[in-house]
Computed example of a mutant assay.
Amino acid sequence: MRIDVEDLHVAYAGRTVVAGAHLIARAGEITGLVGPNGSGKSTLLRAVYRHLKPVAGRVLLDGTDLRELTPARSARHVAALPQERGGDFELTVREVVAMGRTPYKRAFAGEDATDRDLVAGALAGVGMAAAAGRRFTALSGGERQRVLLARAFAQDPDVLVLDEPTNHLDIRHQVELLALLRAQRRTTLVSLHDLSAAASVCDRLHVLHGGAVVASGPPREVLTPALLAEVFGVRAAVVEHPLTGDPLIAVDHRAPAPAPGDAVAVER
Rank of each mutant, 00 (worst) to 15 (best):
28 G>C: 13
242 P>T: 00
238 V>W: 01
25 A>S: 09
61 L>G: 00
241 H>C: 00
100 G>T: 08
225 P>M: 05
126 V>N: 05
47 A>G: 04
1 M>E: 04
237 A>P: 01
158 D>K: 13
17 V>T: 14
58 R>D: 03
73 R>S: 15
74 S>P: 02
150 A>R: 09
114 T>E: 14
64 T>S: 10
239 V>I: 07
252 D>Y: 08
164 E>Y: 05
19 A>G: 13
119 V>E: 04
225 P>G: 07
3 I>F: 01
72 A>D: 15
108 F>R: 15
178 L>K: 02
154 A>P: 08
188 T>N: 05
4 D>G: 05
71 P>H: 11
171 I>E: 07
43 T>D: 08
150 A>N: 11
255 A>T: 02
74 S>D: 07
258 P>R: 00
99 M>V: 08
110 G>N: 07
160 L>E: 02
14 G>W: 09
239 V>F: 00
87 G>P: 03
226 A>W: 02
169 L>C: 09
122 A>I: 09
199 A>Y: 00
116 R>I: 12
157 P>D: 06
52 L>T: 00
136 F>S: 02
112 D>H: 06
56 A>T: 10
99 M>I: 13
133 G>W: 01
213 V>F: 09
23 L>C: 09
41 K>R: 11
118 L>W: 09
184 Q>N: 06
156 D>W: 07
162 L>T: 12
229 A>N: 04
43 T>Q: 10
128 M>T: 07
169 L>K: 06
115 D>L: 12
153 F>Q: 04
32 G>P: 08
239 V>K: 01
111 E>D: 15
223 L>M: 12
149 L>M: 13
87 G>E: 11
237 A>G: 02
55 V>Y: 01
235 R>W: 07
145 Q>G: 01
6 E>Q: 15
35 G>A: 11
101 R>Y: 07
205 L>D: 04
182 R>A: 12
73 R>Q: 14
131 A>P: 02
234 V>N: 08
264 V>N: 01
57 G>S: 08
155 Q>F: 08
43 T>I: 08
213 V>P: 06
268 R>S: 15
68 E>N: 08
105 K>I: 08
253 H>K: 11
97 V>P: 03
234 V>S: 10
127 G>N: 12
